[in-house]
């Protein structure tokens, strides 16, 4: 892998890798760090030594919640969430997408294309089916149905067709980006 790809990713994210002096505040404050196979500080280290592949193949970029605690506390304002976002785009292009994330995102966007809004029950139901987690959160369903917290019928926008077209335009333009 050439460093050109890494340089372009960092430029798009607005991150200069040598701004990071490895203090570790990002990892210390990251709520997801314990589940990451490459900690946030490690991501920056990989960027410094040119190991883009390790970043793209990590679960880190998919587990980042985008909570921005890292950049908030970073003494050099290194925008790690922006780097994670750019890394997700590149990882997807290269086929490294984490399976569960891919399933959720695809179901989510399919939902928006259909209704323009999110149908929570359909989202969770379809995700659980495709991701083979049939029972996840299902114990709450009877309570939610009883109290009208979820409904069978979706709340649809009046112009869901135009929203579908809009999403498709965005998808098309995104794929020719970079």
């Amino acid at each position: 892998m050439t460093n050109e790809k890494l340089d372009s990713l960092l430029a798009k994210a607005g991150v200069r890798q040598y701004d990071c002096y490895q203090c570790g505040k990002c990892t210390g404050g990251c709520p997801m760090a314990r589940a990451m196979d490459l900690k946030p500080r490690g991501v920056m280290r990989c960027a410094q030594i040119g190991s883009l592949e390790r970043i793209l193949k990590s679960n880190t970029i998919w587990l980042c919640t985008g909570c921005h605690t890292c950049v908030e506390r970073c003494p050099h304002d290194v925008d790690l969430p922006a780097l994670m976002e750019e890394a997700r785009y590149l990882a997807s292009d290269m086929g490294y997408e984490r399976r569960d994330s891919k399933v959720l995102n695809e179901v989510f966007i399919a939902n928006l294309k259909m209704f323009g809004r999110n149908h929570e029950m359909l989202l969770a139901g379809l995700y659980n089916m495709i991701a083979f987690k049939p029972l996840q959160d299902m114990s709450s369903v009877p309570h939610m149905l009883k109290h009208g917290l979820i409904e069978i019928k979706p709340h649809e926008t009046q112009k869901s067709e135009s929203i579908k077209k809009m999403i498709e335009r965005a998808e098309k333009l995104s794929s020719v980006r970079s």
Partner: peptide
Amino acid sequence: TSAHTLSELM
């Protein structure tokens, strides 16, 4: 959170 995970523009 899905749309911006897939595409910045979307």
